[in-house]
């Protein structure tokens, strides 16, 4: 099939960017979205133009590196799917596709479709862990955990840190991402010891990074490639309230 792409080009963080139109021919429906970009980039290189910079690594939907805002949706039209796992069979011959970077104050554009998501790392380093030094641990089966708790914790832990939730939210809120980590640890007995300081610190850091507030639109859950549930946000709100009461 033949497509028309309108892609955000921006030289670096300082200069302004704009959408540039590129035709792409002979796209196979079996290609992934990023493989279609490979084909386009190969064409650009042939013309001695600079290829489009985009983030990607695993191409298996797990590293969270890919991040394209496709036709107005974070990671494109397919439910529960990262950009790298989106396949061209989801598009039709003759389609025009608009591709932009994540847009959020806390995720400044680095170049073309690449943004800086280091704010997420700083949120984790403010409290998204259990303080256990190597060698401290006792036998793993000394901490039996009800299967439901373990499963719910796992479901929250499936977050890949891609930032689509922030990009999808009109307030650029990071609540889904932060709450997924808070929930994962709050659901486990090992994690409960630090639950109060954890939620307070992570929320404080989240605010400092310039993420917006949550107005419960649910856009994050709808666009999250790992289908992380907004129930986590409710759980985090409870954790936060409790922690504040105890302060």
């Amino acid at each position: 099939m033949n497509l028309t792409l309108k892609i955000w080009r921006q030289k670096n963080a300082k200069e302004a960017g704009n959408l540039v139109t590129y035709p792409v021919k002979e796209v196979s429906p079996d290609m992934s979205f990023l493989e279609m970009f490979d084909v386009l980039n190969e064409q650009l290189i042939q013309k001695n133009e600079e290829p489009i910079a985009f983030d990607h690594d695993c191409r298996e939907g797990i590293c969270g590196m890919c991040s394209m805002y496709i036709n107005g949706r974070a990671h494109g039209p397919a439910q529960g799917t990262t950009t790298c796992q989106l396949h061209m069979r989801k598009f039709k011959d003759g389609d025009t596709i608009v591709v932009e970077p994540w847009r959020a104050e806390a995720f400044p554009v680095v170049k073309d479709l690449i943004v800086n998501r280091s704010a997420f790392d700083r949120v984790i380093s403010s409290g998204g862990f259990i303080s256990v030094n190597t060698g401290n641990a006792k036998d793993a089966n000394n901490i039996p955990i009800p299967k439901d708790d373990a499963d719910n914790s796992f479901a929250a832990a499936a977050c890949i840190g891609c930032g689509a939730c922030v990009a999808a939210c009109k307030n650029s809120s990071a609540m889904l991402f932060v709450s997924a980590k808070v929930s994962q640890l709050a659901l486990l007995p090992q994690g409960r010891i630090e639950r109060e300081s954890r939620v307070l610190n992570m929320v404080r850091q989240m605010d400092e990074e310039g993420f917006g507030s949550c107005t419960n639109t649910g856009a994050c859950e709808a666009e999250c490639p790992k289908e992380i549930s907004v129930e986590n946000i409710a759980r985090m709100n409870r954790e936060y309230l409790m922690a504040n009461l105890k302060k």
Binding site: F129, I130, V132, T134, G135, N136, A137, K138, D139, A140, N141, I143, P144, I145, P146, K147, A150, D151, S153, F154, A157, Q184, L185, L188, Q190, G191
Partner: peptide, 18 residues
């Protein structure tokens, strides 16, 4: 042991064990 202490959510049986 180390990973479980860190909160790695390994698969578990109904009895709560790994």
């Amino acid at each position: 042991d180390q990973c479980v202490a860190q909160g790695v959510p390994f698969a578990r049986e109904y009895g709560g064990y790994l």
